[in-house]
C-alpha cells in the first residue's frame, strides 16, 4: 500500500513541477467544446441537446493526449525499468498512476462542467445529471486510455495510434452517458443508464489495470 501512496505522491509532484502536462489538455478540452459550439450555432435547443456529446467527446480527446505523456515519460527515462527490477507490483503502479491522472484531468473538468453548462443553456438539474454522468464514466475513460498508452509506450510519436486503438472502446461509455443525459432531458427514468455506467466502471476497474500492467511489463522487458 505504501508503494501505491508513494507512486501517487511522485505523480503529483511531477504534475506540480510541470503543470502543462494537465493544463494543456484542459485548455484543449475547452477549445474542442468551443469549436463544436461554433459549428452548431447559437441555437439554444440544439445546444441543449448536444451538450453531453460535446463535453464527453472533448474530454475523451484531451484524456488521450494526457495519457500519452503520463506513461511515455516513465519509459523513456527508465523509471519503468527500475519499478520492474524492484519487483513492486506493476498493477498497483498503474492503478496509482491512473488515479493521479484522474485527479488532475477529470477533477478540474467536472468543476468546469457547470460553467460550460451555463454556456450551453442547461438548467441546474441537467448540469447535475451531466456531472454525475461524467463522474461515473471518467474512471472508465481514464483506465481505457491507460491501456492504450501502455500498449504504445515503446513506440515513438504514438499519440494518433493511441486514439486509433482506444476510441472504438469509447462507444459504450459515450452511448450510456448521452442516453443518461437524454433521459434526464425527457424526464424519464435515468437509473438503467446509471447502473450500466457503474457496471462499465467495475468491468474497467477489474480488467484494465491488468492489461495496462501486462503492457508495461512487455515494454520494460522488451
Amino acid at each position: 500500500m505504501t508503494f501505491f501512496y508513494r507512486t501517487i505522491a511522485r505523480e503529483f509532484l511531477n504534475y506540480r513541477r510541470k503543470p502543462g502536462l494537465f493544463l494543456n489538455p484542459l485548455i484543449f478540452f475547452g477549445l474542442v467544446v468551443f469549436l463544436f459550439v461554433v459549428g452548431l450555432g447559437p441555437d439554444e435547443a440544439k445546444l441543449n441537446q448536444a451538450a453531453s456529446i460535446f463535453i464527453l467527446v472533448a474530454s475523451l480527446l484531451s484524456v488521450l493526449m494526457s495519457a500519452e505523456s503520463a506513461f511515455d515519460q516513465d519509459y523513456e527515462e527508465g523509471s519503468l525499468e527500475l519499478v520492474v527490477v524492484s519487483s513492486n507490483s506493476l498493477l498497483i503502479y498503474s492503478l496509482a498512476k491512473s488515479l493521479a491522472h484522474w485527479v488532475v484531468t477529470f477533477l478540474p473538468l467536472i468543476l468546469l462542467v457547470p460553467f460550460i453548462g451555463i454556456g450551453l443553456f442547461l438548467d441546474v438539474e441537467q448540469i447535475w445529471v451531466l456531472c454525475l454522468g461524467i463522474l461515473l464514466v471518467s474512471p472508465t475513460i481514464i483506465l481505457l486510455a491507460s491501456v492504450g498508452a501502455a500498449m504504445t509506450i515503446s513506440l515513438p510519436r504514438n499519440g494518433v495510434l493511441i486514439g486509433l486503438l482506444v476510441l472504438p472502446f469509447y462507444v459504450p461509455p459515450l452511448i450510456f452517458v448521452t442516453g443518461l443525459f437524454e433521459a434526464a432531458l425527457l424526464k424519464q427514468n435515468v437509473f438503467p443508464y446509471v447502473y450500466w455506467l457503474i457496471g462499465l466502471l467495475f468491468l474497467a476497474l477489474g480488467l484494465a489495470p491488468s492489461a495496462t500492467s501486462a503492457c508495461l511489463r512487455i515494454a520494460a522487458e522488451d
Partner: peptide, 24 residues
C-alpha cells in the same frame, strides 16, 4: 504481445459494444 493484449481487450468489449449499439 501488445497486439495480443489489444485483441483480448477487444474480445471483452465487443459484446458490450454490440449491446450498447443495440440500445442506442
Amino acid at each position: 504481445r501488445p497486439c495480443a493484449v489489444l485483441a483480448l481487450v477487444g474480445l471483452v468489449n465487443l459484446p458490450i459494444i454490440k449491446y450498447s449499439v443495440d440500445w442506442w
